[in-house]
Design a protein around this nucleic acid. Structure first.
Lengths: 217, 217
DNA sequence: CCGGATCCCCAGGGATACTG
DNA sequence: CAGTATCCCTGGGGATCCGG
């Protein structure tokens, strides 16, 4: 990208990661770990292959990712965030937290993936009752499933299904994520199609890092 | 900007503020407060006027800035960050902190302004000895001057000159800012042209929010 | 199937001139 | 001062093709 030519750390950040798609590539690598070219392509619906290729080169030059030629049985090149690349996590978290305010807007054609369902609770909520016994919440939205595990004062998430969840939240993405992130309350979420089965009291434990934008009724 | 079309809060953030120059406009409005068109243009060396105009419209539509027609004696339109716009501060701070690692690179042609000298200590350092008496550090780099005021456990900065500073740091931008932000130590800063006059012990009070990138000798 | 490279086209950005 | 208008050019989107 063309440099802004400003001796300012924000501008210099953007010189490196301000290009289109760059931060989303970092998101995928941070969420997925080592990725093949095709894995990245799948995780970035809409990206052109030439762009992905170009960005990967640029990111490697900038020292943010490393490419390694994996031997058989993988027999392909793997892309990984470098130590420096992983320091982008706070940047992605800040952006992600700020962007929550737009998650209420309905845009039916948006792509949606289980990983994006998963990272939000882990990054943007806290267990409000850290001493309470462990609990498991199953999220299901648009055929994508993720599991939220509460316990030991932590909120952990993973893609997939749990065997015996204490609570199942199912519905359109903006209902599930809107509820979990405190943009809407349970009643509001139900009104746009959420089904909550099980211990809905667990929702009180999930405290969003809200910034005052949310909880309309 | 063209939407990424992903239901992910990072992607939705970038849909709004991912365009070129957008975040730097927010930086200026955050640092300067209400601005005229020309003020922004001066604070954003290199921006084309049509782009600035376009971005201001987009930002207004997104609800991040408000334009107000000021009556005489100002008699012009003023741009201000809205309440929502001000919530970008954590995003800018995260980016600015991450970008510090690139401030060591020398790029002599980069533009430089006093405001960019000023915000870095306020955002990225802490008073390591909050109970110590107040102190004033004068920063001077490339003819731009800023004042750092330590006191009451806070680090405050402003553009301009102090009457009787306890310490004066003068030299090329990357020497002054590199030292203040912990990228280099005093010795290293002197080696690239820093002059430190006064109580250099105050530097110990200025604790950078470093992330392990710095302090090469 | 994977990992790209190539080509064409268009939108967005850059520089500058011009106007109320 | 506060933009608008214009022209040019680069970078991104989309499809296709190609070697391993």
């Amino acid at each position: 990208m063309r440099s802004y030519g400003q001796y300012c750390s924000i501008a210099r950040s953007l010189d490196v990661i301000g290009d289109r798609w760059t931060l989303l590539i970092a998101r995928e690598l941070l969420l997925q770990g080592a990725c093949r070219f095709t894995d990245l392509k799948k995780g970035l619906p809409g990206i052109a292959t030439n762009l992905l290729s170009t960005r990967l080169k640029e990111l490697e030059e900038a020292g943010l990712i490393t490419r390694e030629e994996a031997p058989p049985p993988i027999a392909t090149t793997l892309y990984t965030l470098s130590e420096t690349g992983r320091t982008l996590e706070p940047v992605l978290k800040a952006l992600g937290l700020w962007g929550l305010r737009f998650m209420a807007d309905e845009r039916p054609d948006d792509a949606f993936q289980a990983r994006w369902l998963a990272y939000a609770p882990e990054w943007f909520t806290t267990d409000a009752d850290p001493d309470a016994p462990p609990a498991v919440i199953q999220l299901v939205a648009a055929d994508e499933a993720a599991v939220v595990e509460l316990g030991n004062g932590r909120v952990r998430t993973r893609v997939g299904r749990a065997t015996d969840p204490d609570l199942v939240l199912e519905g359109p993405p903006r209902a599930v994520l809107g509820l979990v992130n405190g943009l809407i309350d349970l009643e509001g979420a139900r009104r746009i199609g959420l089904t909550a089965t099980g211990r809905t009291d667990l929702l009180k434990r999930l405290r969003p890092h809200g910034d005052g934008t949310g909880c309309s009724s």
